[in-house]
Design a protein around this nucleic acid. Sequence first.
DNA 1: TTCGAGATTTAGGCCAACCTAAATCTGATC
DNA 2: GATCAGATTTAGGTTGGCCTAAATCTCGAA
Lengths: 227, 227
Amino acid sequence: MAAATHEPLTRSVEDYLKVIWGLSPEGRPASTSDIAHRLELSAASVSGMIKRLSEQGLLEHVPYKGVQLTPDGRRAALKMVRRHRIIEAYLVGFLGYGWDGVHQEAERLEHAVSDELIERMSVALGNPAADPHGDPIPTADLAIEEVSWTPLSEVAAGELVELRRVASEEPDRLRYLASVGLQPGATLMVLSHQPFQGPITLDVDGHECVIGHELAQSLFVGRSRSA
Amino acid sequence: MAAATHEPLTRSVEDYLKVIWGLSPEGRPASTSDIAHRLELSAASVSGMIKRLSEQGLLEHVPYKGVQLTPDGRRAALKMVRRHRIIEAYLVGFLGYGWDGVHQEAERLEHAVSDELIERMSVALGNPAADPHGDPIPTADLAIEEVSWTPLSEVAAGELVELRRVASEEPDRLRYLASVGLQPGATLMVLSHQPFQGPITLDVDGHECVIGHELAQSLFVGRSRSA
DNA sequence: TTCGAGATTTAGGCCAACCTAAATCTGATC
DNA sequence: GATCAGATTTAGGTTGGCCTAAATCTCGAA
């Protein structure tokens, strides 16, 4: 069934696989329209590509029901995720990029780097486990840590926690967060929640700061090491 | 005539322009077949692309006579040359690459990096004037030093010179040259020339070494600083 | 001055990846 | 269980960039 030939994947294919991976937590199928939305393509184009990728053995497609990655597809996707996150970490660590600007750059570079370059960057960084946003980096053999941190929106008032991951790629949002000290590693205490998905008041390293509920849902925290 | 619209160029177009620049020393026209040979494409494909690039105002084409870069085309080409050479220098300087392995990597990356990344790499390197092979790097405003070094094949016996540039991209050849100490910066003395384009005997930093005439034509030297 | 080899261009196709418009399917709601 | 909105797929078209084969041009040599 699946063509075992390992021809290099095109940039488009790499993008599709990465996006499908991102849309399938716990391996649930991803829908055509979600993929189309993420890639900013028409649903018809995505439908066509899905057909081709299924024939190549990279996807499992149940018409009208959605797609899942096959083991081959998942490997290819994780390879791209590793590349993306290593590149982000490298640009921040060695070339003075801010965490808000690296996504765009990595999005292009991830298709152009060799495996060797990624491994050299990884070594230069000390084989990091997470990128600048706290997202886990798959290892060279494509194992990825399953993390289960808590969204800040669910932390009770009075708890002292450490920010572990910021789930956003929007430069504006990231710049704002950095400006109030909300970057991975920051220690913070929840001071109060307003009801009805209202804003949350925090103490971040000694500064008081109020953020919206929606933003708090994209901040993931773990128990503070200093607690 | 020339469409002034500055749409981003495709990878293919970038490659064509860079190759045409490389084939036009002193602005002499490049032939369809030379371009085809360098890009490993059919002459018919090149002919078609030449037509499109002329219409875009990047090339001046005289049918059956060859092409030259327009000022726009030359700027785009030099931008790629700068990218390529900065990337090579960066990979050698910061990521432990050997000078024999960087060409291939740079060939892909040059299409994916942003201007910002190139400038950051350049700054990290101290705005170098030459890449690891001794090729001059165009400045950020795309000025390129016109160098006129002497091929080693034309240096008289007895002269003490410094190796400035190695005009080759072949990994095997570069590895061999490095193994005998023939890298930019090396000081060497020509001991003897065999007649009829025969081999040349050198003293490289104290070691004797014999190289063929053809290889000597791709080694460029200047007057030794220590002379 | 003519001829022909070799270079170049034209003609006609192919493929990946996108598009819009039209047809078809699905599932929640009445 | 019929209906319909919205999701999905199919149909048909475009573009960039490549190909081979055929036509055409050029220029040096006879």
